[in-house]
Design a protein around this nucleic acid. Structure first.
Lengths: 222, 222
DNA sequence: AATAGCTATATTGTCGACAAAATGAGGTAA
DNA sequence: TTACCTCATTTTGTCGACAATATAGCTATT
């Protein structure tokens, strides 16, 4: 599959994308069970198609399946957040390091343009919500690493679970502008082809995000 | 699924394990196509079972599938090796760091015992071939990290692809005893609870292994 | 002879039905 | 009341058949 523009060619693809969006956005609540027959009816496809879609959700770490029992959407927990963000810090830090070396000048220019467009959003006081895919800052840097295995592990692996935390816990307040500034300095490091700094800034940025989300998660629990 | 002792409960599990072994060991040659009907006949199961097994092999990065065309076993290439080992270095380095903190004293003792038993093998001049699973040094340290996402990405993700390179390219000569010594010093660092050193030694160890495999891969190509 | 288009064949994608396993309700015994 | 067993129901696992797509071989035309 083309990682940049994932396109639904098969019926199972459509079901997978649809389900994934519903899960990430919280339309189906975290922790709930996925019934194969029910989903087959809802999407008007066969159970085989639903089963395949669910298996792909398991690969994304969005769903857990037990043999002969069924599949449930993962629950958002502090422990899960910590272990996820430890891995994320390592992998995206590496992505930033590689991107500083491997992105083309044009890609870097486009990335700067993207940030400028984000700046408009931030100034207008909106929530700096990051859409999935190509409009997402982190997504661009991941692809910029040019390392196929890294891209696959992040994009097909944990990217959407990360988004799920981000979307469902929300992100607002002072963190928004701070995050934007951090993005800006990461791109600056990449523009300077300073791989080491890019990695360090990215790791810090992800750590701050994690702290912010952890706080949110503990507040919500009360 | 229990990551430590993966157990085949369903027919699809058995097929998956069997196929995975055949691929890693090279019984089915790298790069060749997987025919669903043929495999269904060979293993005496339905195509649905085979399809599910193949999808799981895709998750392991052992197989690539294109819609309406089919699935092929990945080819072993220098580029693939490099990108794989970049990721591996980062993730297993992290695993070693976390293991230095999170492994219990008993687990560390067991790990030392395991290395002693490996020493017998090395002394007797055998190839220090690492079996899959619990007898594997790296496997133990991965589990010792106690980070669920990390464990999942490594064990269900790239572990068996790494083994595939190791098994099919072979490993012999002076690298064998060198690798053993490196293992030994990593365990030493973990015993001392020196997380930083454990990570650095693991990263170096993986880098050396990569260099050795790269050389082998280029030789074989001639 | 080379290429384009067509047809027959083979392969993957999807479906509905049946088999096997888990769940839950109801009843019985301690 | 509680624990355990039984049986009906629900849900998942597996299967064979059909539909849709790709592949390969053949023919015709330049």
């Amino acid at each position: 599959m083309n990682l940049v523009t994932e396109q639904a060619v098969t019926s199972s693809d459509k079901t997978f994308f649809h389900l994934r969006k519903d899960i990430v956005d919280g339309n189906i609540r975290a922790g709930s069970k996925l019934s194969e027959t029910e989903l087959a009816n809802r999407y008007a496809v066969s159970r085989a198609v639903v089963r395949e879609a669910i298996n792909r959700l398991v690969t994304c770490h969005l769903v857990e399946r037990k043999a002969n029992i069924g599949a449930r959407i993962v629950a958002l927990s502090p422990a899960g957040l910590v272990s996820l963000y430890q891995v994320r810090e390592s992998l995206e830090g590496m992505a930033a390091r590689l991107a500083a070396t491997n992105m083309t000048d044009k890609e870097i220019a486009d990335l700067n343009a993207l940030l400028d467009s984000h700046l408009q959003t931030v100034k207008s006081g909106e929530t700096y919500y990051q859409e999935a895919g190509d409009v997402d800052f982190h997504y661009r840097i991941i692809l910029g690493s040019k390392n196929d295995h890294l891209i696959s592990m992040l994009v097909e692996g944990i990217y959407h679970l990360i988004r799920m935390y981000r979307v469902q816990l929300g992100m607002a307040g002072p963190r928004v502008t701070t995050a934007f500034d951090e993005h800006k300095s990461i791109v600056q490091a990449i523009s300077n082809r300073d791989a080491e700094l890019a990695e360090m800034l990215m790791r810090r940025h992800i750590l701050y995000t994690r702290n912010s989300l952890e706080k949110k998660l503990l507040e919500d629990a009360c």
